[in-house]
Design a protein around this nucleic acid. Structure first.
Length: 596
DNA sequence: GCCGTCACG
DNA sequence: ACGTACGTGACGGCA
């Protein structure tokens, strides 16, 4: 690849070298890449910006290099280009670039073409859609490692310009060339609509969510930490006394030795490395000995303390007390988002301690947190996609779907279903979504595999629509090698053709689950885009702050509560027109625990 | 850097 | 006989 830049001749640039750039108004498409001091959008700053408008012609505009010239009027030039709605912006991971440009006071406007997201839609199974990987795959271009360019310098700003400029220019040109390759592929794969109508608009929504962040109550977490520390010390003493020795409770290996060698308890499952000490094993052992119960308590509290209570305050912005997660758009194989650094999609909820931790997620003064979550979204999608008569009828008439499943599986009137039978049915309904096996269901219900097989048989006997839907999905997967969501998102599942039974059955569960989980992901993404739009159009200052797969969390000024509640409910319930209604539960309060 | 474990949907 | 529910991310231990 030709690397053209303003500084190809390795001469220091003229003071107004950037004026060699063509007039922004002649550009219709612009590939760009922002070079930064690091990769933390909250704390790092822009070093320079690479631009490419045609093959073999890339420019680098230094902004904050140690060796200058750092073009004093670059911001005006750049904003006139980047804020031009008629210029499509091409980049690899545009969310990051949008962030960094915002930090420079420049809003990236116009249509987006993100080559990282394009690569993700083409193959969501890939673990890594970095520019290095994607460039290698589609352009057979081996990118020079950033580490190598950085050398011993602490920041890209200290890399000499004659070295920095060609490197940066290459990134912008790579994005430009990837766009030429990936655009036709998206079209050919039927992914263009999903890309342009969902994934690209979503980038700005996610950027705004990450910028907003969510406020935490640090004094509350500090108090919880102290209380938890006392409990843990007490538990540790109890554990050492009960075990008759001191050991590292957090070491599965040392724990296994204590339980299965020193105390002689009967081991359950084995892992690759030794006997398992996981929760289901310890629960069984708790019938034989006092120790496993204490270990389980210790593990739970230790997990909550180290992962959440002690970690979150350190990650908050000191001035605002807000936490800014990353919402990753190109990670999951099904189309869901993921959240990291920190993960705010796995904040505890199921226990009393979970509630206490959620009460530390708070709204700013004068505002409330509003939570809106889809009720049984994947089962409703299953009803729609399968056309199963019973499931569809239940949702259309707002009937308790788990009780109804119980009545059919246990062959008794809905009114006669016991709480236990309903719980069983709920697990079975989850099992259907996961592509259940008799073994998996037996583990989940703690019953014999034979009995689980019987439940499954009863289930499919009374849900012929679901049965044939799953059979057709698997047949389609075998024929075309992939499965699709309602909105056309694809996931390749080559292993459905494997001759290895275990591998094939695992692939079949994936093939069953992916259209359901993936359609739910499409649906909430549509809702997020429309809500984001509606909030802006109506000039509301409410901020969307979190997405947790089937739930959206908003920070709402009190006087906007009524209006926002209506918008959120409407957009979530009408994101797609299905044969069954979508139901959304809305709640609000001063903290996340109250909002639920 | 991998493993086991466990937090969530 | 095998070895199994679907999708994630983060922690501590250990090599």
């Amino acid at each position: 690849m030709k690397q053209a830049s303003l500084f190809d001749d390795h001469q220091p640039p003229e003071k107004d070298a950037h004026r060699q750039s063509p007039s922004p108004h002649t550009l219709k498409e612009l590939a760009f890449d922002v070079e930064t001091t690091g990769n933390n959008p909250m704390s790092d700053s822009v070093v320079g910006i690479a631009l490419c408008r045609r093959e073999g012609e890339a420019y680098y505009v230094p902004v904050r290099h140690a060796d200058g010239p750092n073009l004093p009027d670059a911001p005006e030039i750049l904003s006139s280009i980047f804020e031009d709605e008629t210029v499509a912006k091409i980049g690899h991971n545009l969310k990051f670039d949008i962030f960094m440009m915002r930090r420079e006071g420049i809003e990236v406007r116009g249509p987006l073409f993100d080559t990282m997201v394009a690569s993700y839609l083409l193959n969501p199974n890939w673990p890594n859609h970095s520019l290095e990987e994607v460039g290698l795959e589609y352009l057979h271009h081996r990118k020079r490692p950033f580490r190598e360019v950085l050398g011993k310098k602490a920041s890209f700003a200290e890399v000499p310009l004659e070295k920095a400029a060609p490197y940066a220019a290459e990134d912008a040109e790579l994005a430009f060339e990837l766009r030429q390759i990936l655009f036709p592929k998206l079209d050919a794969e039927g992914l263009a609509q999903l890309y342009h109508e969902i994934e690209m608009p979503l980038i700005r929504v996610l950027a705004d969510m990450e910028t907003a962040g969510v406020k935490i109550d640090i004094p509350l977490l500090t108090a919880l930490s102290k209380e938890l520390e006392r409990d843990l010390v007490n538990l540790q003493t109890t554990i050492y006394r009960t075990a008759g020795q001191e050991f590292n409770i957090n070491s599965p290996r040392q724990l296994a030795k204590v339980l299965f060698e020193d105390l002689g308890l009967k081991p359950g499952r084995k892992t690759k490395t030794g006997f398992s000490t996981s929760v289901d094993v310890l629960e069984d052992l708790a019938h034989q000995h006092e120790l496993p119960g204490h270990i389980l308590n210790y593990r739970t509290l230790h997990k909550l303390k180290t992962t959440y209570i002690d970690t979150l305050p350190a990650l908050a912005e000191p001035s605002s007390k807000r936490i800014h997660t990353s919402f990753n758009q190109t990670i999951t194989a099904t189309g869901r988002l993921s959240s990291s650094d920190p993960n705010l999609q796995n904040i505890p909820v199921r226990t009393e301690w979970g509630t206490r931790i959620r009460s530390a997620f708070i709204a700013d003064s004068g505002s409330l947190l509003l939570s809106a979550d889809y009720s049984q979204i994947e089962l409703r999608i299953l009803a729609h996609m399968s056309g199963d008569a019973g499931l569809t009828h239940a949702f259309q008439h707002n009937i308790d779907v788990h009780a109804r499943t119980a009545s059919e599986v246990f062959q008794k009137p809905v009114d006669a279903v016991s709480a236990d039978e309903r719980r069983f049915a709920k697990t079975i309904n989850f099992g259907v979504i996961y592509g259940m096996s008799a073994f998996g269901l037996s583990e989940a219900l703690d019953i014999a595999p034979k009995d689980a097989a019987e439940f499954i048989q009863h289930y499919f006997a009374t849900h012929s629509g679901v049965k044939s839907y799953i059979e057709e999905t698997l047949e389609t997967a075998r024929r075309q090698g992939y499965v699709s969501t309602l909105f056309g998102r694809k996931r390749q599942i080559p292993d459905v053709r494997s001759t290895n039974v275990t591998v094939r059955q695992a692939a079949e569960r994936v093939a069953t689950n992916t259209p359901l989980q993936g359609t739910a992901a499409d649906l909430i993404k549509i809702a997020m885009i429309r809500i984001h739009d509606a909030l802006r159009t109506k000039k509301l200052t409410t901020k969307m702050v979190l997405q947790i797969h089937d739930e959206l969390l908003f920070e709402v000024p009190e006087w906007e509560l009524d209006a926002v509640q209506k918008i959120v409910r409407h957009e979530m319930e009408h994101a797609m027109k299905l044969t069954v209604p979508l139901k959304v539960d809305v709640g609000w309060g001063k903290n996340w625990a109250e909002a639920h």
